[in-house]
């Protein structure tokens, strides 16, 4: 598969900081493997600069490099700031994360300006613009005419979430069945181990963030393995939208465990080269994951189905 990438960042120092931010957001822990392809996807860059940036982090003692298994995280990423004091401050990365968080929480409107963000976050406009560039590179936002920036449609409503599942139902099976699909074997193995460990954990101690990390990585691996570059790229761009905070609220542990077992069954078929069967299981997985919980139900009132238009913006 050829990789179609936008605006790869050439500054390895900056990328190293972004990798740290990404692994922190992704819930990685000390000792976790850092597959280059997965890190590249998380940071929306190709593998080449990732390798250089990981080497830089290895020089700082933040990651280990093993000859056979690649890079592993050597420290707790939330406490890694001190360990990488020689890296440039990631103020713009932190601000980008705050902007995303506040957008997901409906504190920010569809369109924003750098001036307004500068006032809101009490920071200089230059840092704000750098943050917006980071978000632009990750396809969260785009420059609109004039001084405005426009957020991409988010999956923050039942209708948007349903449309997202429809989109994935079209493309994820297609990614698996287009001739030439190839999953990253090392990543598949790491995912399997992670999922099996998650399934072995008791329900009371189930780590939802770890589920989310594995789920994101599993579906990203499908997109990256697609032989059809346009299917793969469209999926990767779309799947990134699921990273917004709060995307997993309302899903109970029973379903998350069931979903993990479905991931493993799909992996079995991929590893056996049975891509049609993997695609069938993927369809089933996505249909079951698509929540049909009603939006409203009360005594004596009709039920409001999951994807019906509620009364919105009526004032």
């Amino acid at each position: 598969m050829q990789t179609v990438r936008k605006r790869p960042r050439s500054n390895h120092l900056d990328l190293a900081q972004r990798i740290l931010e990404a692994v922190r957001r992704g819930g990685f822990r000390s000792g976790d493997r850092l597959p280059e392809q997965q890190i590249a996807t998380l940071c929306s860059v190709s593998r080449t600069p990732v390798r250089a940036a990981l080497q830089l982090l290895a020089d700082q003692g933040v990651v280990h490099r093993e000859k056979t298994s690649g890079f592993t995280l050597a420290v707790d990423p939330s406490g890694a700031t001190g360990a990488v004091s020689e890296l440039p401050p990631a103020e713009e990365s932190r601000l980008a994360e705050s902007i995303l968080r506040d957008r997901a929480a409906r504190r920010l409107d569809d369109t924003v300006t750098a001036s307004a963000l500068s006032r809101r976050y009490q920071t200089d406009k230059r840092t704000v613009l750098k943050s917006l560039k980071i978000l632009e590179a990750e396809n969260w936002i785009e420059k609109a005419p004039g001084q405005s920036w426009l957020f991409q449609a988010a999956q923050d409503g039942p209708e948007a979430a349903a449309e997202s599942y429809d989109f994935r139902l079209m493309l994820e099976p297609a990614a698996l069945t287009a001739p030439g699909f190839k999953a990253d074997e090392a990543q598949a193995t790491a995912l399997r181990l992670g999922m099996e460990a998650l399934l072995a954990s008791p329900e009371s101690g189930f780590d939802v963030r770890e589920f989310q990390r594995l789920d994101m990585a599993f579906h990203a691996m499908i997109a990256q393995g697609a032989a059809n570059r346009f299917v793969g790229q469209s999926l990767e761009d779309h799947l990134r939208l699921r990273r917004l905070p709060g995307m997993l609220h309302g899903v109970n542990v029973f379903r998350l465990k069931q979903s993990t077992r479905e991931h493993l069954a799909i992996l079995d078929q991929i590893e056996a080269g049975q891509f049609e069967a993997a695609a069938d299981l993927m369809r089933l997985h996505l249909r079951l994951s698509r929540s049909q919980r009603p939006q409203a139900a009360s005594r004596g009132a009709p039920v409001l189905p999951a994807t019906a238009q509620a009364i919105r913006g009526r004032r």
């Binding site: 409906r106 409107d109 923050d156 039942p158 609220h249 309302g250 939006q295 913006g313």
Partner: peptide, 22 residues
Amino acid sequence: VGGFREAYRAVPDNVYLDGWFP
């Protein structure tokens, strides 16, 4: 906020809204 999350704008900084919680 149940099925009405999209009706809200300019949510205060000490408030977090969602359509469903455990």
